[in-house]
């Protein structure tokens, strides 16, 4: 089962694994951006963040509590989370930091220092 869902770098991983797109918010402060992504059931170990070609991808693998008994009402989705964001060129990708608390991942995206003055750049749209 694990091999089936493992990320496949060279190809169409979307076909091997289904993801849920988590809700996210972006807050801008003077020296950078804060990105909040809702991923209930994801711990620090389940987080996978990568930056490639100015695109930030955040994957959250869920470790859901095992519940005894039979399911009689079901609304949650079992899939893992994935979302991609296009990064503003002013963001210093090397300084991105992340923490996750109660299923809410908070990423701090600082602007590179020499770019801070530039006002015309914006954190670009969600992909």
């Amino acid at each position: 089962m694990n091999t089936l869902t493992r990320e496949n770098r060279d190809g169409d991983r979307a076909q091997t694994e289904q993801f849920v797109v988590p809700p996210a918010s972006v807050i801008e402060a003077g020296d950078g951006y804060t990105l909040e992504v809702e991923m209930p059931g994801v711990t620090k170990d389940g987080l996978d963040i990568s930056v490639e070609n100015n695109e930030l991808t955040i994957i959250g693998r869920r470790s859901l509590p095992v519940v005894e008994g039979t399911l009689i009402h079901h609304e949650s989705r079992p899939e893992n989370f994935r979302r991609t964001f296009e990064l503003d060129p002013s963001i210093d990708a090397k300084k991105i930091s992340v923490r996750i608390e109660q299923g809410l991942a908070t990423l701090i995206l600082p602007k590179a220092e020499h770019r801070q003055a530039a006002q015309d750049h914006r954190f670009l749209s969600f992909v």
Binding site: G41, T70, G103
Partner: peptide, 22 residues
């Protein structure tokens, strides 16, 4: 928020997704 309900012999268990709460 998404809510699941489970039933076993002894318990009823509700599981609710509430990310980022106190």
């Amino acid at each position: 928020p998404a809510l699941d309900l489970c039933q076993s012999n002894d318990n009823v268990i509700a599981v609710v997704e509430l990310p980022g709460m106190r």
